[in-house]
Design a protein around this nucleic acid. Sequence first.
DNA 1: TAGGCCATCTGGTCCT
DNA 2: AGGACCAGATGGCCTA
Length: 307
Amino acid sequence: MDSDASLVSSRPSSPEPDDLFVPARGKGGGGGGGGSFSGGTVSSSTPSDCPPELSAAELRGALGAAGGHPGDKLGVGGFKSSSSSSSSSSSSSATKKDKKQMTEPELQQLRLKINSRERKRMHDLNIAMDGLREVMPYAHGPSVRKLSKIATLLLARNYILMLTNSLEEMKRLLSDIYGGHHAAFHPAACGGLAHSTALPAAAAAAAAHHPAVHHPVLPAAAVPSAALPGSGLSSVRPPHALLKSPTAAAAGGAPLGAGGGGGGGGGGFQHWGGMPCPCSMCQVPPPHHHVSALGAGGLARLTSDAK
DNA sequence: TAGGCCATCTGGTCCT
DNA sequence: AGGACCAGATGGCCTA
Protein backbone atom coordinates (compact mmCIF):
# COMPACT_ATOMS: atom_id res chain seq x y z
CA MET A 1 0.00 0.00 0.00
CA ASP A 2 2.35 2.61 1.16
CA SER A 3 5.71 1.37 0.20
CA ASP A 4 6.09 2.39 -3.39
CA ALA A 5 9.62 1.27 -3.66
CA SER A 6 8.94 -2.10 -2.28
CA LEU A 7 6.19 -2.64 -4.72
CA VAL A 8 8.60 -3.20 -7.47
CA SER A 9 10.21 -6.40 -6.59
CA SER A 10 12.00 -5.63 -3.45
CA ARG A 11 14.18 -8.62 -4.01
CA PRO A 12 16.58 -9.09 -6.79
CA SER A 13 16.13 -12.20 -8.78
CA SER A 14 19.35 -13.41 -7.48
CA PRO A 15 22.26 -11.91 -5.71
CA GLU A 16 25.41 -10.79 -7.30
CA PRO A 17 27.92 -13.50 -7.83
CA ASP A 18 30.24 -11.69 -5.56
CA ASP A 19 27.86 -12.02 -2.74
CA LEU A 20 27.33 -15.59 -3.42
CA PHE A 21 29.09 -17.80 -1.20
CA VAL A 22 28.55 -20.28 1.37
CA PRO A 23 30.44 -20.92 4.42
CA ALA A 24 29.24 -24.38 3.88
CA ARG A 25 30.22 -25.41 7.30
CA GLY A 26 29.12 -22.97 9.83
CA LYS A 27 25.67 -22.35 8.61
CA GLY A 28 23.47 -24.16 10.97
CA GLY A 29 20.70 -24.39 8.49
CA GLY A 30 20.11 -23.77 4.87
CA GLY A 31 21.38 -20.88 3.00
CA GLY A 32 18.69 -18.42 3.57
CA GLY A 33 18.50 -15.61 1.14
CA GLY A 34 21.90 -14.23 1.69
CA GLY A 35 21.73 -14.31 5.37
CA SER A 36 25.05 -15.47 6.53
CA PHE A 37 27.29 -15.26 3.57
CA SER A 38 30.75 -14.41 4.51
CA GLY A 39 33.84 -14.54 2.43
CA GLY A 40 35.29 -16.74 -0.23
CA THR A 41 33.40 -15.82 -3.30
CA VAL A 42 32.65 -18.65 -5.55
CA SER A 43 32.76 -17.36 -9.00
CA SER A 44 34.17 -20.52 -10.36
CA SER A 45 31.10 -21.01 -12.37
CA THR A 46 29.51 -18.07 -13.99
CA PRO A 47 31.46 -19.28 -16.88
CA SER A 48 29.46 -17.70 -19.55
CA ASP A 49 27.68 -14.45 -19.25
CA CYS A 50 24.32 -15.97 -18.66
CA PRO A 51 22.86 -15.73 -22.13
CA PRO A 52 19.31 -14.53 -22.11
CA GLU A 53 18.16 -17.31 -24.33
CA LEU A 54 17.45 -20.69 -23.04
CA SER A 55 19.97 -23.21 -23.95
CA ALA A 56 18.91 -26.25 -25.84
CA ALA A 57 19.45 -28.29 -22.78
CA GLU A 58 17.26 -26.05 -20.74
CA LEU A 59 14.55 -26.18 -23.31
CA ARG A 60 14.84 -29.87 -23.41
CA GLY A 61 14.50 -30.00 -19.74
CA ALA A 62 11.60 -27.63 -19.71
CA LEU A 63 9.72 -29.44 -22.39
CA GLY A 64 10.78 -32.93 -21.82
CA ALA A 65 10.74 -32.95 -18.09
CA ALA A 66 9.11 -35.99 -16.69
CA GLY A 67 12.43 -37.60 -17.09
CA GLY A 68 13.63 -37.37 -13.59
CA HIS A 69 11.11 -38.58 -11.14
CA PRO A 70 13.32 -39.84 -8.48
CA GLY A 71 10.21 -40.71 -6.68
CA ASP A 72 11.72 -41.94 -3.55
CA LYS A 73 14.24 -39.80 -1.86
CA LEU A 74 13.47 -41.65 1.28
CA GLY A 75 12.12 -38.79 3.18
CA VAL A 76 15.15 -36.71 2.70
CA GLY A 77 16.61 -38.20 5.71
CA GLY A 78 20.06 -37.01 5.25
CA PHE A 79 19.17 -33.44 4.71
CA LYS A 80 21.88 -31.07 5.66
CA SER A 81 24.21 -33.52 7.15
CA SER A 82 26.36 -33.47 4.10
CA SER A 83 28.69 -30.90 5.44
CA SER A 84 30.09 -33.59 7.58
CA SER A 85 31.84 -36.49 6.04
CA SER A 86 28.60 -37.41 4.35
CA SER A 87 28.95 -40.96 3.15
CA SER A 88 25.51 -41.94 4.23
CA SER A 89 25.63 -44.89 1.89
CA SER A 90 23.26 -45.68 -0.90
CA SER A 91 23.99 -43.56 -3.92
CA SER A 92 26.11 -43.58 -7.02
CA SER A 93 28.78 -46.01 -6.10
CA ALA A 94 31.76 -44.59 -7.90
CA THR A 95 31.04 -41.07 -6.92
CA LYS A 96 30.49 -42.17 -3.42
CA LYS A 97 33.77 -43.90 -3.31
CA ASP A 98 35.50 -40.84 -4.51
CA LYS A 99 33.69 -38.75 -2.03
CA LYS A 100 34.78 -40.99 0.72
CA GLN A 101 38.31 -40.62 -0.36
CA MET A 102 38.07 -36.91 -0.65
CA THR A 103 39.32 -34.79 2.12
CA GLU A 104 37.12 -32.34 3.88
CA PRO A 105 38.36 -29.32 1.95
CA GLU A 106 37.96 -31.17 -1.27
CA LEU A 107 34.44 -32.14 -0.42
CA GLN A 108 33.71 -28.61 0.50
CA GLN A 109 35.16 -27.44 -2.75
CA LEU A 110 33.00 -29.87 -4.63
CA ARG A 111 29.95 -28.79 -2.73
CA LEU A 112 30.63 -25.18 -3.50
CA LYS A 113 31.04 -26.00 -7.12
CA ILE A 114 27.78 -27.86 -7.25
CA ASN A 115 26.01 -25.16 -5.33
CA SER A 116 27.35 -22.56 -7.67
CA ARG A 117 26.14 -24.49 -10.66
CA GLU A 118 22.73 -24.85 -9.17
CA ARG A 119 22.65 -21.19 -8.38
CA LYS A 120 23.52 -20.33 -11.90
CA ARG A 121 20.89 -22.66 -13.18
CA MET A 122 18.26 -21.03 -11.08
CA HIS A 123 19.54 -17.65 -12.08
CA ASP A 124 19.13 -18.52 -15.73
CA LEU A 125 15.68 -19.75 -14.98
CA ASN A 126 14.86 -16.45 -13.37
CA ILE A 127 16.20 -14.59 -16.35
CA ALA A 128 13.93 -16.57 -18.57
CA MET A 129 11.09 -15.86 -16.22
CA ASP A 130 11.84 -12.17 -16.38
CA GLY A 131 11.85 -12.38 -20.14
CA LEU A 132 8.45 -13.92 -20.00
CA ARG A 133 7.22 -11.23 -17.68
CA GLU A 134 8.42 -8.58 -20.05
CA VAL A 135 6.26 -9.80 -22.87
CA MET A 136 3.22 -10.29 -20.76
CA PRO A 137 0.62 -7.60 -21.02
CA TYR A 138 0.33 -5.55 -17.92
CA ALA A 139 2.96 -7.54 -16.25
CA HIS A 140 5.06 -4.50 -15.61
CA GLY A 141 4.57 -1.00 -14.50
CA PRO A 142 5.67 1.47 -11.93
CA SER A 143 2.95 0.67 -9.51
CA VAL A 144 2.63 -2.96 -10.26
CA ARG A 145 4.51 -5.45 -8.34
CA LYS A 146 6.41 -8.06 -10.21
CA LEU A 147 4.38 -11.08 -11.09
CA SER A 148 5.15 -14.09 -9.08
CA LYS A 149 6.47 -17.08 -10.92
CA ILE A 150 3.29 -19.03 -10.73
CA ALA A 151 1.28 -16.01 -11.76
CA THR A 152 3.58 -15.43 -14.69
CA LEU A 153 3.18 -18.96 -15.89
CA LEU A 154 -0.57 -18.98 -15.53
CA LEU A 155 -0.89 -15.63 -17.19
CA ALA A 156 1.34 -16.68 -20.03
CA ARG A 157 -0.68 -19.76 -20.60
CA ASN A 158 -3.92 -17.87 -20.71
CA TYR A 159 -2.39 -15.26 -22.91
CA ILE A 160 -1.32 -17.86 -25.40
CA LEU A 161 -4.75 -19.38 -25.36
CA MET A 162 -6.28 -16.02 -25.97
CA LEU A 163 -4.00 -15.28 -28.88
CA THR A 164 -4.73 -18.66 -30.32
CA ASN A 165 -8.41 -17.98 -30.09
CA SER A 166 -7.93 -14.62 -31.70
CA LEU A 167 -6.18 -16.25 -34.57
CA GLU A 168 -8.94 -18.75 -34.99
CA GLU A 169 -11.52 -16.03 -34.87
CA MET A 170 -9.68 -14.07 -37.49
CA LYS A 171 -9.47 -17.03 -39.76
CA ARG A 172 -13.15 -17.64 -39.37
CA LEU A 173 -13.92 -14.02 -40.06
CA LEU A 174 -11.93 -14.00 -43.23
CA SER A 175 -13.45 -17.23 -44.24
CA ASP A 176 -16.89 -15.75 -43.81
CA ILE A 177 -15.98 -12.67 -45.73
CA TYR A 178 -14.54 -14.43 -48.68
CA GLY A 179 -16.87 -17.35 -48.66
CA GLY A 180 -15.93 -20.52 -50.36
CA HIS A 181 -15.10 -19.10 -53.74
CA HIS A 182 -11.86 -17.66 -52.59
CA ALA A 183 -10.36 -20.73 -51.21
CA ALA A 184 -6.97 -19.57 -52.29
CA PHE A 185 -7.02 -16.91 -49.69
CA HIS A 186 -5.44 -18.37 -46.65
CA PRO A 187 -3.85 -15.65 -44.64
CA ALA A 188 -2.59 -17.88 -41.97
CA ALA A 189 -0.59 -19.93 -44.38
CA CYS A 190 0.67 -16.91 -46.23
CA GLY A 191 1.45 -14.97 -43.20
CA GLY A 192 -1.59 -12.82 -43.51
CA LEU A 193 0.21 -9.55 -43.48
CA ALA A 194 1.27 -10.08 -47.03
CA HIS A 195 -2.29 -9.60 -48.06
CA SER A 196 -2.79 -6.41 -46.24
CA THR A 197 -3.44 -4.42 -49.32
CA ALA A 198 -5.92 -6.91 -50.53
CA LEU A 199 -8.10 -6.62 -47.52
CA PRO A 200 -11.46 -5.34 -48.53
CA ALA A 201 -13.44 -2.77 -46.72
CA ALA A 202 -15.33 -5.38 -44.85
CA ALA A 203 -12.22 -6.82 -43.40
CA ALA A 204 -10.93 -3.42 -42.53
CA ALA A 205 -14.16 -2.68 -40.80
CA ALA A 206 -13.90 -5.85 -38.87
CA ALA A 207 -10.43 -4.90 -37.93
CA ALA A 208 -11.51 -1.54 -36.78
CA HIS A 209 -14.06 -3.14 -34.61
CA HIS A 210 -11.42 -5.25 -33.01
CA PRO A 211 -8.45 -3.08 -32.48
CA ALA A 212 -5.30 -4.10 -30.82
CA VAL A 213 -4.35 -7.50 -29.88
CA HIS A 214 -7.62 -9.10 -30.17
CA HIS A 215 -6.79 -9.69 -33.78
CA PRO A 216 -3.10 -9.65 -33.99
CA VAL A 217 -3.13 -11.02 -37.47
CA LEU A 218 -4.49 -7.89 -38.98
CA PRO A 219 -2.07 -5.49 -40.55
CA ALA A 220 -1.01 -2.53 -38.58
CA ALA A 221 -2.71 -0.25 -41.03
CA ALA A 222 -6.03 -1.75 -40.20
CA VAL A 223 -5.29 -1.95 -36.55
CA PRO A 224 -4.25 1.40 -35.30
CA SER A 225 -3.08 0.44 -31.90
CA ALA A 226 -1.88 -2.83 -32.99
CA ALA A 227 0.01 -4.22 -30.46
CA LEU A 228 2.74 -6.30 -29.60
CA PRO A 229 2.87 -7.48 -26.14
CA GLY A 230 4.89 -4.82 -24.67
CA SER A 231 3.39 -1.86 -26.29
CA GLY A 232 -0.25 -1.36 -25.97
CA LEU A 233 -2.21 -4.34 -25.12
CA SER A 234 -4.91 -2.17 -23.88
CA SER A 235 -7.48 -4.73 -24.69
CA VAL A 236 -5.89 -7.55 -22.95
CA ARG A 237 -6.41 -7.62 -19.31
CA PRO A 238 -4.49 -9.85 -17.08
CA PRO A 239 -5.97 -11.39 -14.06
CA HIS A 240 -5.77 -8.35 -11.91
CA ALA A 241 -5.68 -10.54 -8.94
CA LEU A 242 -2.32 -11.74 -10.03
CA LEU A 243 -0.88 -8.33 -10.34
CA LYS A 244 -1.25 -7.53 -6.74
CA SER A 245 -1.67 -3.96 -7.56
CA PRO A 246 -4.25 -1.81 -5.92
CA THR A 247 -4.73 0.09 -9.11
CA ALA A 248 -4.97 -2.99 -11.20
CA ALA A 249 -7.44 -4.49 -8.86
CA ALA A 250 -9.47 -1.37 -8.76
CA ALA A 251 -9.50 -1.13 -12.49
CA GLY A 252 -11.54 -4.26 -12.58
CA GLY A 253 -12.19 -5.87 -15.88
CA ALA A 254 -12.35 -9.43 -16.83
CA PRO A 255 -9.36 -11.43 -15.97
CA LEU A 256 -7.35 -12.93 -18.68
CA GLY A 257 -7.72 -16.21 -17.04
CA ALA A 258 -10.74 -16.96 -19.05
CA GLY A 259 -10.28 -20.63 -19.44
CA GLY A 260 -10.85 -21.38 -15.85
CA GLY A 261 -13.28 -19.69 -13.67
CA GLY A 262 -11.44 -16.52 -14.27
CA GLY A 263 -14.26 -14.81 -16.01
CA GLY A 264 -16.44 -15.29 -13.10
CA GLY A 265 -19.63 -13.39 -13.41
CA GLY A 266 -19.88 -11.52 -16.61
CA GLY A 267 -19.52 -14.24 -19.19
CA GLY A 268 -17.12 -13.50 -22.00
CA PHE A 269 -14.38 -11.04 -21.44
CA GLN A 270 -14.81 -7.58 -22.79
CA HIS A 271 -11.90 -6.28 -24.69
CA TRP A 272 -13.51 -3.23 -26.13
CA GLY A 273 -13.74 -0.56 -23.53
CA GLY A 274 -16.18 -2.38 -21.36
CA MET A 275 -18.55 -2.95 -24.21
CA PRO A 276 -19.52 -6.51 -24.76
CA CYS A 277 -18.09 -7.80 -27.95
CA PRO A 278 -20.27 -9.73 -30.31
CA CYS A 279 -17.61 -11.95 -31.68
CA SER A 280 -17.73 -15.59 -30.82
CA MET A 281 -14.49 -15.56 -28.99
CA CYS A 282 -15.73 -13.08 -26.51
CA GLN A 283 -18.97 -14.88 -26.01
CA VAL A 284 -17.50 -18.22 -25.44
CA PRO A 285 -14.77 -18.74 -22.97
CA PRO A 286 -11.70 -20.39 -24.37
CA PRO A 287 -12.83 -23.88 -25.12
CA HIS A 288 -11.41 -27.29 -24.62
CA HIS A 289 -8.72 -26.04 -22.34
CA HIS A 290 -10.15 -26.62 -18.99
CA VAL A 291 -7.72 -24.71 -17.03
CA SER A 292 -6.81 -27.73 -15.12
CA ALA A 293 -6.45 -27.95 -11.47
CA LEU A 294 -3.60 -25.57 -11.27
CA GLY A 295 -5.27 -23.08 -13.51
CA ALA A 296 -8.54 -22.80 -11.75
CA GLY A 297 -7.41 -23.62 -8.34
CA GLY A 298 -4.28 -21.66 -8.64
CA LEU A 299 -6.03 -18.63 -9.91
CA ALA A 300 -8.63 -18.91 -7.26
CA ARG A 301 -5.99 -19.13 -4.69
CA LEU A 302 -4.11 -16.27 -6.16
CA THR A 303 -7.25 -14.26 -6.35
CA SER A 304 -7.50 -14.30 -2.65
CA ASP A 305 -4.07 -12.84 -2.76
CA ALA A 306 -5.18 -9.75 -4.52
CA LYS A 307 -4.77 -6.47 -2.89
C1' DT B 1 1.80 -13.17 13.42
C1' DA B 2 0.58 -16.04 9.55
C1' DG B 3 1.06 -16.88 4.92
C1' DG B 4 3.15 -16.23 0.40
C1' DC B 5 7.16 -15.97 -2.31
C1' DC B 6 11.76 -16.65 -3.00
C1' DA B 7 16.84 -18.01 -2.87
C1' DT B 8 19.73 -21.36 -1.49
C1' DC B 9 21.51 -25.85 -0.10
C1' DT B 10 21.49 -30.61 -0.78
C1' DG B 11 21.03 -35.40 -2.23
C1' DG B 12 19.24 -38.25 -5.72
C1' DT B 13 18.47 -39.52 -10.52
C1' DC B 14 19.04 -39.19 -15.39
C1' DC B 15 21.61 -37.96 -19.45
C1' DT B 16 25.66 -37.10 -22.36
C1' DA C 1 32.50 -38.88 -14.65
C1' DG C 2 30.46 -34.66 -14.81
C1' DG C 3 26.66 -31.90 -15.50
C1' DA C 4 21.67 -31.03 -15.71
C1' DC C 5 17.43 -31.56 -13.61
C1' DC C 6 14.46 -32.23 -9.75
C1' DA C 7 12.29 -31.98 -5.33
C1' DG C 8 12.51 -31.42 -0.28
C1' DA C 9 13.94 -28.50 3.41
C1' DT C 10 15.09 -24.20 5.50
C1' DG C 11 15.30 -19.47 6.49
C1' DG C 12 14.63 -14.57 5.12
C1' DC C 13 11.74 -10.86 3.48
C1' DC C 14 7.38 -8.78 2.77
C1' DT C 15 2.48 -7.93 3.17
C1' DA C 16 -2.15 -8.28 5.11
